[in-house]
C-alpha cells in the first residue's frame, strides 16, 4: 500500500508570510476599531482650568442629558440627531479664521488658542428658545481675550460668527434645513462683555462633538441658538449681520434674542421653562437671570421691538 502523501502546493499558491502576518494585524485592528467608539475620545487634552466668575450654584444638568438632547441642526432636527451623527465632524486639525476689521487677521490653530488663552470653568444657565433650560459647567475663556489679541479696529461694530458648511458631513435630512454655514452675530459691546465666552470643553472634558467641538460661543443671557457651535470664522464688521434663524423666520427670531419672558414667541411660551434634569417647570427670568450684569447694555431700547 502506498503511504498517503500530503499534496505539495506549487510555490505560486503559497501565501507569503508577510501577507498572513498583515492579515492578523488587520483583524486585531478591526477589533480595536469596534471597541473604540465606546471609549471617550480625547483628541486634545485641555490645559489647566481654574474656576471662573459668574458661576451659579444651581443643580447641574447631567452630562448624559446635556450630550444627548442637543440642537445642532447641521446634524439634523431631532434632539438625538447630533449625538448620532456629530462623530463625522473632524475637529483635529481645526483652525478659526479671524478677519474683517481687525489689526492682525489670520487663521488661528486650536493648539495656539488653547496655549494662548487661560481656561476657566463657568457654570451657566442655558435657556433655549424652545422653553427648556439646563445648567452646564463650561470650560472656556472670554471672547474679549481673543478680540484683544487680534486687535479690534475702531470702525468695527458687530462680530459675525460662522459654523462649518461641509454638507457631506451632514445627514441628508439636515442639508436643506437652513442656509449653511450657520451664522450668528453679536453687537461689539455684547461680544466684549465678560459673561461672553468661547467654550472648548464642558464637565471637565474636551467639548463633545455634538455640543459644538472644538470651539463654540456661550452667551448665557440670550436664547441658546445665539451660542453658535463649531466656529470656523469670526469676522469683525461695521454693519449688523443677519443671523441664520433671523433670515429664516424674522418674525420669530430677532438679532438680539435676549431671554425675555415678556416678549411673545409664536411657537413657544417664553414665560416659563422646563429644567430638563429635574423635569420641573420654573418661571423664566429676564436676561436668564443675568440682568444685573447685562441690562445696562440695552438702556433706552424697546426690547419688544428689538427682540
Amino acid at each position: 500500500m502506498r503511504p498517503y502523501r500530503y499534496r505539495v502546493p506549487p510555490a505560486r499558491e503559497i501565501t507569503p508570510q508577510q501577507t498572513w502576518l498583515n492579515r492578523r494585524a488587520l483583524i486585531a485592528a478591526m477589533g480595536a476599531a469596534l471597541a473604540a467608539p465606546a471609549l471617550p475620545r480625547k483628541a486634545t487634552a485641555l490645559p489647566e482650568v481654574v474656576p471662573g466668575p459668574f458661576s451659579t450654584d444651581e443643580a447641574q444638568t447631567s452630562f448624559e442629558v446635556a450630550t444627548n438632547y442637543c440642537n445642532f441642526f447641521e446634524f439634523g432636527p431631532a434632539k438625538d440627531d447630533p449625538a448620532r451623527h456629530a462623530h463625522r465632524l473632524i475637529t483635529d486639525p481645526w483652525s478659526v479664521t479671524i478677519d474683517g476689521l481687525v489689526e492682525r487677521p489670520g487663521a488661528m490653530a486650536m493648539e495656539d488658542i488653547l496655549a494662548r488663552f487661560p481656561l476657566e470653568e463657568r457654570i451657566y444657565r442655558l435657556r433655549c428658545v424652545e422653553a427648556w433650560s439646563m445648567v452646564i459647567p463650561w470650560i472656556g475663556f472670554p471672547l474679549a481675550d481673543l478680540l484683544a489679541n487680534v486687535g479690534v479696529r475702531p470702525d468695527a461694530r458687530h462680530v459675525l460668527f460662522e459654523g462649518f458648511d461641509d454638507t457631506e458631513l451632514m445627514p441628508d435630512h439636515a442639508r436643506n434645513l437652513l442656509e449653511w454655514p450657520y451664522r450668528e452675530g453679536l453687537r461689539l459691546d455684547e461680544a466684549l462683555h465678560p459673561l461672553t465666552i468661547l467654550a472648548v470643553g464642558m464637565y471637565g472634558q474636551v467639548m463633545p462633538n455634538q455640543n459644538g467641538a472644538p470651539i463654540r460661543l456661550v452667551v448665557p443671557w440670550k436664547y441658546g441658538f445665539k451660542s453658535i457651535k463649531s466656529i470656523r470664522r469670526i469676522s469683525l464688521v461695521a454693519e449688523r449681520p443677519v443671523s441664520s434663524w433671523q433670515e429664516r423666520a424674522p418674525r420669530e427670531y430677532g438679532y438680539y434674542a435676549n431671554v425675555n419672558p415678556q416678549v411673545r414667541h409664536p411657537r413657544w411660551h417664553q414665560a416659563t421653562e422646563r429644567r430638563l434634569h429635574d423635569g420641573g417647570r420654573i418661571r423664566t427670568e429676564m436676561f436668564n437671570g443675568y440682568g444685573e450684569e447685562v441690562a445696562h447694555l440695552y438702556d433706552g431700547m424697546d426690547l419688544s421691538e428689538h427682540y
Binding site: 413657544w268 411660551h269 416659563t272 423635569g279 417647570r281
Partner: peptide
C-alpha cells in the same frame, strides 16, 4: 402633568398665550 409640571397656573397662562 409632565410638560407643564402639573402647575395649573403655568398651563392656563400657556393656554391663554399659545394658539397651538
Amino acid at each position: 402633568m409632565l410638560d407643564q409640571g402639573g402647575i395649573i397656573e403655568f398651563a392656563l397662562a400657556e393656554a391663554r398665550a399659545m394658539v397651538h
